[in-house]
Design a protein around this nucleic acid. Structure first.
Length: 874
RNA sequence: GGGGCGGUGGCGGAAUUGGCAGACGCAGGGGACUUAAAAUCCCCCGGUUCACACCAUGUGGGUUCAAGUCCCACCCGCCCUACCA
């Protein structure tokens, strides 16, 4: 073996990723190769991937999200786009505070230390991130503008303060957004503690103003799955508010999607927390009602998951009047009615609602059918289940006989007529109800962007004057065991003067939900140092909107709704222009541990590495879990291969040290379908390692000029262009695994051709160059080394245009004709590509291998698929 | 209970969208090289079978000349959600 590679006088033909990778990373950075600046002569491409929370370490899941996205951004770059691929850190949040409490490190220090570490890890992956555009949400230069946005929303009536019962996590000592409360037992998403209800004054954003617009996805190319999740989350339902009255004359409004069934409302149900409960409860029912309220209150604190869902309730003793027929109906209290939706009160129509039916049967309440399909004759006393289908109205006075269909809202004739009548008589009105609620953004924590509001006894709440922004977090803070926010406990921080009257006033001591910070980070990337505003309009005009956004599906209902809301609000405030911030969204699947379960990061005894990106619940008892980082097991560089046993160490850094970044990048693209993810398995990485070693060998081994036929070269070129075509399509379609397998396949072909004497010819050189260009986005370092240093081509391979597919070259002159008899494969015959149908049929019928199956049989039909197969039916 | 995604060799996964099932890779087996190991290279590798052949894409039906792919019914796994009036 003769060595051709003589870079830095080091005579070796061994592939040494370690040396190559640092070398090129340094050079690319020094040359500013990936700096993206406004260039009106070029088409822009804003490739964005969700920013990580700086929990301390990058883990394999981060890389799984970023490496393929980076490869695709590089592909777009070679396609002639001016590509911006920025990165930042979602740096506010609870883990930093936990670190402060447990390890006595200031959150600032902990966070920024982690960022340094993670930034260098990201660099070691060889990404094309333009680090000049880095934005860190905990940086005062950043949260200055988060606060500024809050003020704009406040000034435009999109932020308001209200006392409301909120979900409070006693462990984290903070309120949670509805989205952060999980499960039947209503536990905190972060620490699993059961949340409790607390009445607090809180700041909200009016996300509900945009509910209908958020349901419109016509301007964006997002996965159906995310659109469905958001649609369900917003939960629009059409119906009517109907005003009932208690016997005492108090109004008791309910929302219903079925006003057509009003005549069948035989009782009402209030949520246990409903404000009218106390008033309507009769003295004799007082004790059972209060007992029930107490019980319902506690119910949220026991594992409801384990309790059979049986309806429970108690009679209040009070009655209401059904406005449509003046019937006197009892009012019950039951926890199957939620205070948080509609009015916390319902009219119960047991004949046509499953829940009401179950409840009525349980407590012996009256059931009156009011919808009946043809051919049926319902009897309330004997019905065995609620009827929810279409039919015509009965027992409904003047509406008897009116048709009711399956349609929702006014489109349903029965509904429309009843709504019109209700509105005419002032008994109710048509409304739309949403599950989506206004976004609660107050957090009683230190490590977040302070809400820039000031309270004055005479002037009320007023925003901090914009020229005084940012409202900085005080550095000298203390965490007391009470768990109260250090901002609240700080001796002087909250003291200020009223911006209106100048008298003594108090600052808001709550900080903002970190989702507020991440709702606009894509805008800060445009101009992270800009001082005149949140972003430089020039940059906005050129780069926005985001062309491709990649990240995990788990953000479908939180971040991805908030960021859309935020952008629409900014548009209405005249700050942003487009209707949608991100044009195209694609989600990678989740990486699972080897047993197929969700990966949980180990709590490595320090308990602070929880990372909200990872949805770090404590695993249920008995659930197996894979440790992503285990500090006791660091592999040496010479190292033995990764242990094959379970409980494996999967730290990207260790993998990079062992195999090199290119191998790891390629394996992340190769090992699973990107959109599905799946159980992680380190074993297979030797496959991509061998691929790169073999590639290296192909370029560095001696080339012996052989005899090469024109035919071999033509075949080779066809393979190359076919692969090029496929790879180009796969990058567009986010099908990363087949990009690598196509490259591997092509390498096998090249090796074969080399053995067949193709090396040394003029075409061979061109083909080798093409192959490097095709590899470059996925494995940028080895491609650069082979291109620039081994082949001696012009630096950099990443500045080369993506090769064009030569369609003519792809055309074959021969194909393998499949001969089937009754659909079964019997022969393969090589024929010219332009063979006529008749010729193909003739050839097939003459097949020797097929002959035995045709013998003595009558040929019924011959199907010829041009260019593919002939099926003989006998 | 509702919604979504999926089920193809021992494993991860391919399959031009109805046309050669199992590309590419891992693991495994055999061989070459080596004092030996690693690395590398070559061959084999769904099942039954000496072979011919037959059977195979979760199960059962159907459409079709032809089904992993389309239709109907069902089973299993994972994820999300949870009494939404």
């Amino acid at each position: 073996m003769i060595c051709l590679h003589q870079g830095d006088g080091n005579m070796t033909s061994e592939y040494k990723p370690g040396d190559i990778e640092t070398k090129w990373q340094k050079k690319w950075e020094a040359d500013g190769l990936y700096q993206a600046d406004i260039d009106p002569s070029k088409k822009k491409f804003y490739a964005l991937t969700m920013l990580p929370y700086p929990s301390g370490e990058m883990h394999i899941g981060h890389w799984y999200a970023m490496a393929p996205s980076d490869a695709r951004a590089r592909f777009k770059r070679m396609h002639g786009y001016n590509v911006m691929f920025p990165m930042g850190f979602d740096a506010f949040g609870l883990p930093a505070e936990n670190a402060a409490i447990q390890r006595k490190i200031h959150p600032q220090k902990w966070t920024f230390g982690n960022i340094d570490r993670m930034r260098s890890q990201l660099k070691s992956m060889g990404t094309m991130i333009d680090w000049r555009r880095e934005a860190v949400s905990a940086d005062p230069e950043y949260y200055h503008w988060t606060q500024w946005f809050f003020i704009q929303l406040f000034n435009n009536n999109l932020a308001y303060r209200k006392q409301s019962p909120v979900d409070w996590c006693p462990q984290c000592n903070t309120t949670l957004a509805r989205e952060q409360v999980h499960g039947d037992d209503r536990h905190c998403e972060r620490c699993d503690t059961q949340v409790i209800k607390k009445d607090l004054d809180q700041w909200f954003f009016k996300t509900t103003n945009y509910a209908d617009e958020l349901l419109d996805f016509s301007q964006i190319d997002w996965p159906d799955r995310v659109k469905t999740l958001q649609t369900n989350w917003i939960g629009r339902s059409e119906g009517a508010d109907v005003i009932f009255k208690t016997e005492d004359g108090d109004e008791l409004t309910v929302f219903t999607t079925r006003p057509d069934t009003l005549w069948g409302a035989t009782f009402m149900v209030l949520a246990p927390e409903h404000p009218l409960v106390e008033k309507i409860t009769t003295p004799e029912q007082k004790d059972p009602v209060e007992a029930y309220q107490k019980e319902a209150d506690q119910k949220t604190e026991i594992q409801r998951a384990t309790v059979e869902k049986e309806k429970s309730g108690v009679f209040s003793g009070g009655y209401a009047i059904n406005p449509v027929n003046k019937a006197r109906i009892p009012i019950w209290i039951a926890d199957y009615v939620m205070m948080g939706y509609g009015f916390g009160a319902i009219m119960a129509v047991p004949a046509h609602d499953e829940r009401d039916f179950e409840f009525a049967r349980q407590y012996g309440l009256e059931i009156i059918p009011v919808i009946q399909p043809g051919g049926e004759k319902f009897d309330g006393a004997t019905m065995t289940e609620a009827y929810v289908g279409p039919g015509s109205m009965i027992n409904s006075a003047q509406f008897d006989g009116t048709e009711v269909t399956d349609q929702k809202g006014r489109a349903n004739p029965g509904l429309g007529k009843v709504i019109d009548w209700l509105e005419k008589d002032g008994l109710g009105k048509e409304t739309v109800s949403y599950k989506l609620r206004d976004w609660l953004i107050s957090r009683q924590r230190y490590w977040g962007a302070p809400i820039p509001m000031i309270y004055c006894d005479t002037c009320g709440w007023n925003p901090v004057p914009e020229e005084e922004l940012p409202v900085l977090l005080p550095e000298e803070v203390e965490w007391l065991p009470t768990g109260e926010s250090p901002l609240k406990l700080h001796p002087t921080w909250k003291d200020t003067t009223c911006p209106k009257c100048g008298e003594k006033a108090t600052r808001e001591t709550d900080t903002m939900d970190t989702f507020m910070c991440s709702s606009w980070y894509h805008l800060r990337y445009l101009s992270p140092k800009y001082k005149e505003g949140p972003f430089d309009q020039k940059e906005y005009d050129y780069w926005m909107p985001v062309d491709t956004y990649t990240g995990g599906i788990e953000h479908a209902t939180m971040h991805l709704i908030y960021t859309r809301f935020f952008h629409k609000a900014l548009r209405d405030l005249g700050i942003a222009e487009a209707n949608e911030p991100m044009v195209q969204l694609r989600n990678q699947g989740m990486l699972l541990s080897e047993d197929g379960k969700k990966i949980s990061k180990s709590r490595d005894g320090e308990g602070v590495k929880d990372d909200k990106e990872d949805n770090l619940k404590k695993p249920a008892i008995g659930e197996p879990m894979l440790q992503l980082r285990n500090q006791g097991m660091v592999l040496g560089e010479d190292g033995e291969k990764m242990s094959k046993s379970r409980g494996n160490v999967i730290a990207p850094d260790d993998l990079v040290a062992l195999y090199g970044a290119d191998t790891v990048r390629a394996y992340l693209m190769f090992f699973a379908r990107w959109d599905l993810g799946g159980p992680w398995n380190s074993q297979g990485i030797t496959g991509t390692e061998r691929w790169l070693k073999r590639t290296w060998a192909l370029y560095t081994e001696a080339e012996v000029k052989g005899d090469v036929s024109d035919e071999l070269i033509r075949d080779l070129k066809r393979e190359v262009h076919t692969a090029l075509d496929r790879i180009s399509k796969d990058y567009e379609g986010f099908e990363f695994n087949t990009i690598i397998s196509t490259l591997m396949e092509l390498l096998n072909t090249l090796h074969e051709a080399q053995r067949g004497g193709a090396a040394g010819s003029k075409e061979w050189k061109e083909i080798l160059e093409l192959y490097l260009l095709m590899m470059a986005p996925a494995v940028p370092h080895i491609a650069e080394e082979l291109w620039t240093d081994v082949l001696g081509k012009t630096y950099s391979v990443h500045d080369q245009p993506w090769p064009e597919v030569d369609r003519e070259m792809m055309e074959k002159d021969e194909i393998t004709l499949i001969v089937q008899v009754n659909g079964k494969l019997r022969d393969r015959i090589v024929v010219p590509v332009d063979i006529s149908k008749e010729e193909a049929e003739k050839t097939a019928l003459a097949s020797e291998d097929a002959a035995p199956y045709l013998e003595g049989k009558e040929i019924r039909k011959v199907i010829v698929v041009p260019g593919r197969l002939v099926n003989i039916v006998v």
